[in-house]
Amino acid sequence: MKNVIEKFKAEKAAIELKKSEMQDRQSEGIEEAYQTGKRIAERWVRKASYQELKDAVRRPNAKHDANYFSLMYSIYFTSLEKICPKESKRFKWVHNDAFVNGWREEVNKIWESIRDDINQ
């Protein structure tokens, strides 16, 4: 009986280890997608039109911004596919949300730094 219990404990430990490794790989993939999105933001800003840039910038009202972001999500990704096809293709089916969120966060940072120059 002790052998059976030890065998089950060993199997359970092996399963837990595999789950942990899968979660680590998953979180690494999400982080990589997010960082890639942030990296390509500057290239996207240089090639994007003024209207595309204004559309990507956060709205002052959080609820309106969340609704607008969900509405425009596919349009943002299409724009990213045109300007940065290699990176977009990599994250089209996996970790797409992290990729677009990283890109948008960096676009907002860039916008904050250049807003005064553009609006003059």
Rank of each mutant, 00 (worst) to 15 (best):
K18D: 08
F8W: 10
M22A: 09
W44G: 01
Q51A: 10
N119E: 15
W103I: 12
E112D: 13
R39K: 14
K38L: 02
N67L: 12
A13G: 03
S27M: 14
Q26E: 06
I110S: 13
W111A: 15
K47W: 02
K109A: 15
M22K: 10
W103A: 08
N101F: 10
G102L: 07
A56Q: 04
I83D: 09
Q51W: 06
K89F: 12
D65S: 04
S49C: 00
R115L: 08
E42R: 08
E42L: 01
R90Y: 10
Q23F: 07
L53E: 02
V94P: 01
K2W: 13
Y68A: 11
K63R: 01
K9H: 04
V100E: 07
V107I: 15
K89V: 09
Y50Q: 06
A41H: 08
Y68F: 08
W103R: 06
R58G: 07
L71V: 11
Y34I: 00
W111P: 01
D116A: 12
I83H: 12
C84M: 04
E106F: 02
I110Q: 13
Y50A: 04
N96F: 12
R46F: 04
D24A: 14
N96K: 15
S113I: 00
K12W: 00
K86R: 12
C84H: 05
W111K: 06
A14N: 11
A41K: 10
G29W: 04
V45I: 02
H95V: 03
L80D: 02
K82I: 05
W111T: 05
E106P: 00
D55I: 03
Y73F: 13
S88G: 08
R90D: 06
I118H: 08
S20L: 05
A33N: 11
F8Q: 15
A66I: 01
N108I: 06
D116G: 06
A56I: 12
V107M: 11
A14W: 06
Y76V: 13
L80E: 02
K86P: 13
L71Q: 06
R39Q: 13
A10W: 03
K9M: 08
A13R: 13
C84K: 02
R39M: 11
H95R: 10
N119L: 13
Q120N: 13
S20I: 01
K89G: 12
Y34R: 08
I75S: 04
E87C: 03
Y73P: 00
K18Q: 11
A33P: 11
Y76M: 11
G102P: 10
E81L: 06
I110L: 12
T36P: 13
E105Q: 14
H95Y: 15
E31A: 11
K89P: 01
A33H: 13
E106D: 03
V45W: 07
R43S: 07
D65F: 02
S70Q: 07
W103S: 09
G29F: 07
I118V: 14
S79H: 06
K7Q: 13
K12F: 00
E112R: 09
A10Y: 03
Y50N: 04
E87W: 05
E28L: 13
W44C: 01
I75G: 01
Y34K: 07
N96Q: 15
